[in-house]
Design a protein around this nucleic acid. Sequence first.
DNA 1: GATGTGACTTTGT
DNA 2: CACAAAGCCACAT
Length: 114
Amino acid sequence: MTNVSIIARILNTVKVVPPGFVASYGQVADLSGLPGRARLVGKQLTNTFEGAAIPWHRIVRSDGKIAFPVGSEKAEEQRQRLIAEGVVVRNNRISMKRFQWQPDLAEILHTLKY
DNA sequence: GATGTGACTTTGT
DNA sequence: CACAAAGCCACAT
């Protein structure tokens, strides 16, 4: 499997995360058929979040924390974008219990058609 | 090829 | 809740 298709899987998965919810890096990796490669997800978002149409701000750490340093420009932008969609962010952290995206079968199918 | 560095995760203190 | 350790993998040096 080529690198480009791996990147495509990751980006496609991120695009499926609905507004008002978040997913963890590891979750995106898993749904993309790439278990154990959470760091690769972050890596790819780095290369693309300046681009467009990719809701990079909906991806956070497994414990709900925003991955950027508190107070940094990126952390601020991510916080703003999330709050704008109704996600509650307190102390750079989100309640995964309330806001983590739980994909249904139809959405999981998206990851199986590769 | 060894080493260090990440938008990471899990488990154990 | 904080911290450490180990696991993970692509990339740059």
